[in-house]
Nucleic acid binder design. Structure first.
Lengths: 338, 338
DNA sequence: GTGAAAGCGCTAACAA
DNA sequence: TTGTTAGCGCTTTCAC
C-alpha cells in the first residue's frame, strides 16, 4: 500500500517552515500559537491534503476517538435502533463506533471485548449477554470506561436501564382496560432480570385491579418460544382473551400462532407486546406495544461514557428510563385466506 | 487510564528470557522459533495476561485487521442484514468492522470515509450514497481496497451487485401468473440504477407475456412514496389489480394505503415487493417479495476485500448475484376493523 | 511561543 | 534460529 505518498506532519511542518511540534499544536488547538504561524500551518495542511493518522495519535496519546458497542444481535430491531442512536450521538461527539455482535454467546462476547481492548477503544457500550457471566474487567482493568445498556452487570459500572416493571404494568393495564378478562403473560427466561421484572409488572397490575391471578409462561425471547407458549394454552383449552408478550420476537410468534389457529387479533385475543415491532407505524402496527426509549437510552449511555472519558471517577450510576405504551387509534384484523 | 500496568511485549520477553523479536515472532507465528523458546513465550504471555496492542501493531506494520463498512441507514433491514452478514464473515477472518451510517448524505459519507482513512482501516465495504458523486479516492489513493455493494461507483473498484432486471422480471411474472391483468410498477428515483433496472425488468416481463404496457410511477424509495403512488392511482380511478413495488419501505407504504382504503390484499390488489420485509417469515410475510441474497453478497464482498488485501492488483471485478422470488404457500388477508 | 528530542508498543531489517 | 536496532506518525515534556 502506497502510504508513503500520504503527507505526514513532517511534510506540513517543512512546507510551513515550522517545527513538528507547532504543527501538532495548531492541528489540535491545544496550546496557543502565533496566529501567523498557525495560518501558515493550516494553509500548508490543506495544500498538501494532510489527513491525521489516528493510529499514531492513539499510540502516543493513549486515547482513542473510537468507541465499541457490543450487542447480542444487530438484526434485532431493538438493538439496531440502539446501535443507530449510539452512532448518531457518537458522531456528534466526533467519534466512531466499532460494532460487535455476540449472538448472545459468551465466547464471542469475550472475543469482542478482547478485540476492543486490543484496538484501544476509548470506551465501550455493552448490552451484556449475561448479567452474571459477562466479564468486562479486561476493559475496566485498563481504565476503559464501560456503560451497560438494557441489562445490568455484576461489576460496578454505569448502567442505562428501562423500568421493566412499569412497562409490564402499563401493558397489562392496557389489556384490562380494553376489556380482557382472562389475561396471561409470556415472559422471557427465568434467569434474565428483564423477564422477571416484566412479569412482576404484569402481576402488580392484576393485583391492583383486583383481577384473578393470570397464567404465565417462561419462554426464550425468540419467535418460536412465543408461538409455542400460545399453542400450548390452546391445546390445554386455556386460551386467554388477552396476553402480554414480553419482547418483540415472541410477540411475532404469538401473532403467527394466532393466525395459524384462526384466532382473530384483537377480536378473540388482545395482544400487547414489549419492544417495538419493526417499522412500528406500518403494517405491523396493529399491536400495541410498550416501546423502549432507545434514543434516550443511547444518549444517556453516550453522555455517561463521555463523562467518564473526561475523567469522572465517581461511583457507578444507574439511569432508569420509563418505557411508554404505544397504543393505536385503529387496529387491523388479520385472517387466513388461502 | 492506568495502562502502565498492562503487560507489553517487553514484559513477556523478560519473563521468558528471550528478546522482543522472538516474542513477536511467536505471537505472530510468522517465522520459525525453537519450540522450547516458543513454549516459554506462550507460557509467559498467558501468565502475564498479555494482550496485543493492535494500535502499535498497525502503526508499525501499516496494516489493520479493522475493516470499515459504510451504509446509508443501518435501520433499513436490507442494510442491517448486509452489516450483520459482513460482520459474521469478517469475524471468521478474525477482523473487526467499524460501521458508519451516512443517512444517504454525501457530507456524512465523506466524513465517514475520512475517519476510516484516519483510523487506517485495512479495507472498506461501501453501499454508496450516490453512483456518481460518492468519492472513494481518499481510500483508493492510499491503497486501501474498496468494495462497492448494492450500487456501482464511478471509480473502478470491485462491485457486488444484484441482477435487478431479473428481479423485476421475476416479480412481474409472478403477478401475471397469479392472475393479475392490469399490473403496475412503483419504482425508485429516476437517477438510481436499481430503480431503472427493476422497472426495466417489469417491462421486459410484460413484453414477454404480450401483456399491455403497465403503468408505472417513480417514487423515493420511502414508505410515504409508495403510499402516495398507490393513492394517486386510486384517485385517478386507475387502480391496478397487481403492483410490483421496487423496495421494502415503499411496499409497506403500498400496503398501508391499501388498508386505509379498504382494498384487500391480495384479493383486490396483488402486491409483490422487492427486498425482504423485516422478519420475513413472520406476520409481515403475506406479501411475496424478491429477496436479495444478503449473505452471499456479504460473503462475496468480504472475499474480494480479503483477496485485495493479500495483494491482488488485478482489474476491478463485478460480482452479480441473482435475487430470488420468495412466494408464499399461504397468504393472509388484512382488513380494517376499528 | 517555539523547537528538539524522547518515546507510545510493536514489527522487520539486518547482524550475529 | 535468535537478538539488536531502527523506526511507524504522532504528542508532549523540557529547554530555550
Amino acid at each position: 500500500m502506497n502510504r508513503a505518498r500520504t503527507p505526514r506532519i513532517a511534510d506540513v511542518a517543512r512546507r510551513a517552515r515550522v517545527s513538528l511540534a507547532t504543527v501538532s499544536r495548531v492541528l489540535n488547538g491545544k496550546s496557543t500559537v502565533d496566529p501567523r504561524l498557525a495560518a501558515r500551518v493550516t494553509a500548508a495542511a490543506t495544500e498538501l491534503g494532510y489527513r491525521p493518522n489516528h493510529v499514531a495519535r492513539n499510540l502516543r496519546a493513549r486515547s482513542s476517538t473510537v468507541w465499541g458497542i457490543v450487542v447480542a444481535d444487530i438484526t434485532n430491531p431493538f438493538f439496531t435502533r440502539i446501535v443507530r442512536a449510539v452512532q448518531d450521538a457518537a458522531w456528534k461527539e466526533r467519534r466512531t463506533v466499532i460494532v460487535c455482535n455476540t449472538d448472545e454467546d459468551l465466547d464471542r462476547e469475550r472475543g469482542a471485548i478482547d478485540v476492543l481492548v486490543a484496538e484501544g477503544v476509548g470506551g465501550v457500550i455493552i448490552a451484556p449477554a449475561s448479567e452474571t457471566a459477562t466479564d468486562v474487567r479486561p476493559l475496566t482493568d485498563r481504565g476503559i470506561p464501560v456503560v451497560a445498556i438494557d441489562r445490568r452487570l455484576p461489576t460496578a459500572v454505569d448502567c442505562v436501564l428501562v423500568d421493566n416493571i412499569a412497562g409490564g404494568r402499563a401493558a397489562t393495564e392496557h389489556l384490562l382496560a380494553s376489556g380482557a378478562r382472562h389475561v396471561a403473560c409470556i415472559t422471557g427466561p427465568r434467569d434474565t432480570t428483564t423477564a422477571r421484572e416484566r412479569l412482576l409488572g404484569f402481576r402488580q397490575a392484576l393485583a391492583a385491579a383486583g383481577a384473578e391471578r393470570g397464567s404465565f409462561s417462561h419462554a426464550d425471547y425468540r419467535e418460536e418460544g412465543g408461538r409455542a407458549a400460545l399453542l400450548r394454552w390452546i391445546r390445554q383449552d386455556r386460551l386467554p382473551d388477552g396476553v402480554f408478550v414480553a419482547n418483540n420476537l415472541m410477540t411475532l410468534g404469538v401473532l403467527r400462532a394466532a393466525y395459524e389457529q384462526g384466532i382473530s387479533v384483537p377480536g378473540d385475543l388482545r395482544v400487547v407486546g414489549f419492544d417495538e415491532l419493526p417499522w412500528g407505524g406500518g403494517v405491523a402496527g396493529r399491536v400495541p406495544v410498550v416501546v423502549q426509549p432507545t434514543t434516550a437510552m443511547a444518549d444517556a449511555a453516550v453522555a455517561m461514557l463521555a463523562r467518564r472519558e473526561s475523567g469522572d471517577r465517581g461511583p457507578a450510576r444507574n439511569v432508569v428510563l420509563t418505557p411508554r405504551l404505544h397504543a393505536l387509534d385503529r387496529s387491523v384484523k388479520l385472517t387466513v385466506v388461502a
